[in-house]
């Protein structure tokens, strides 16, 4: 009895939260709609009192600003924001410039990657990467060294390292930072990386391997494919951090390695069978393909 009551309460609570969510979605749409704003802006509208109207107007402005923000994020995919470092000893009063990189994968926006920068250099407005959420396979350090070089040591000392932090001085012009190019190069690397990951997933799908979670289903598909193709691929997996190399495994024990370039072009493919290199299997798999996507198509057509 008690358990059924509990279940009922739980179901009702779930419904309440679902309805609340729906309500807030409707609110956010309605409040920023043009007709709503027109209604609110009408001077002679006495249906609602002034203070409530003011409140609604500010809410509407906020919502519009947020909508624009989201639009920029979705379309430009590279946005900046300001943040504060909670550390009381943070450099530059804790001012942080954040860079937000949006990534889409499988028609969905992933959690954006963030690069948070501060200005630790005395007497120079140079930025330095403070924190970031990029995976280690993105060469952030190298890109930062190229596009965001620190000011030359002679003209200013870093406040973190230099004694007292009071010395140093003149503005440095010899090392110029280029935030825009840095951001573009970084985004390029991130997007390439996700495309490579995606292409490996596509390869697995095309070969009927499925995700690791639903191996059983994958096996079934593989069983179907076995009829039309002589030897089945049993494993396709990224072999290195950057997903530039893919290991391939065939059911008969042959193994292969496919090396991808930055943008998914095929650099090399080696297949090793029992008696050394198996060039025929390699040719079989590629069939004159130049890009990995073409291999995906070929595999999908074969299975």
């Amino acid at each position: 009895m008690a358990s059924s009551l509990d279940d009922e309460i739980e179901a009702l609570q779930a419904r309440v939260s679902a309805l609340k969510k729906q309500l807030s979605i409707h609110t956010s749409t309605l409040i920023a709609a043009r007709s709503t704003r027109q209604l609110l802006a009408q001077e002679d509208n006495t249906a609602i009192d002034a203070s409530l109207k003011q409140k609604l107007l500010t809410q509407s402005d906020l919502q519009q600003a947020h909508n624009q923000h989201c639009l920029y994020r979705a379309c430009a995919t590279l946005t900046t924001f300001r943040a504060r470092d909670p550390d009381p000893h943070a450099v530059d009063g804790g001012a942080i410039l954040g860079l937000r990189i949006e990534v889409t994968s499988r028609a969905k926006f992933l959690r954006p990657y963030y690069v948070l920068m501060n200005r630790p250099y005395v007497g120079a407005r140079h930025l330095r990467v403070h924190r970031h959420t990029l995976p280690p396979c993105i060469p952030l350090a190298g890109l930062a060294a190229r596009y965001l070089p620190p000011p030359s040591a002679s003209s200013s000392s870093r406040s973190g390292g230099g004694g007292g932090g009071g010395d140093g001085g003149s503005k440095d012009t010899t090392t110029r930072q280029d935030l825009a190019r840095f951001a573009r190069a970084l985004r390029r690397e991130v997007v390439r990386y996700h495309h490579r990951l995606g292409v490996v997933a596509d390869l697995r799908k095309a070969a009927g391997l499925g995700r690791k979670k639903d191996v059983d289903e994958g096996d079934d598909e593989g069983g179907v494919g076995q009829g039309s193709r002589p030897v089945q691929l049993v494993d396709i997996a990224p072999a290195d951090a950057e997903t530039k190399q893919i290991t391939l495994e065939w059911a008969d024990g042959r193994t292969g390695r496919l090396v991808m370039g930055d943008d998914g072009e095929i650099v090399k493919l080696v297949v090793l069978g029992e008696n050394g290199r198996d060039r025929e299997a390699g040719r079989d798999l590629l069939g004159g393909a130049v890009r990995v996507e073409e291999v995906v198509k070929r595999l999908a057509a074969m299975v």
């Binding site: 807030s24 979605i25 956010s28 749409t29 919502q63 947020h66 909508n67 989201c70 639009l71 994020r73 979705a74 909670p86 949006e102 969905k108 926006f109 992933l110 959690r111 954006p112 990657y113 963030y114 948070l116 924190r131 970031h132 959420t133 990029l134 995976p135 280690p136």
Partner: peptide, 27 residues
């Protein structure tokens, strides 16, 4: 993602469902 986003910065690296921060969420 958590390598250099420790402490309070970990909210930026949090990938769990709620804080996806997709730009399609207009709330």
């Amino acid at each position: 993602r958590t390598n250099s986003a420790g402490g309070g910065w970990s909210i930026y690296a949090d990938e769990s469902g709620k804080k996806r921060e997709t730009p399609l969420d207009l709330l």
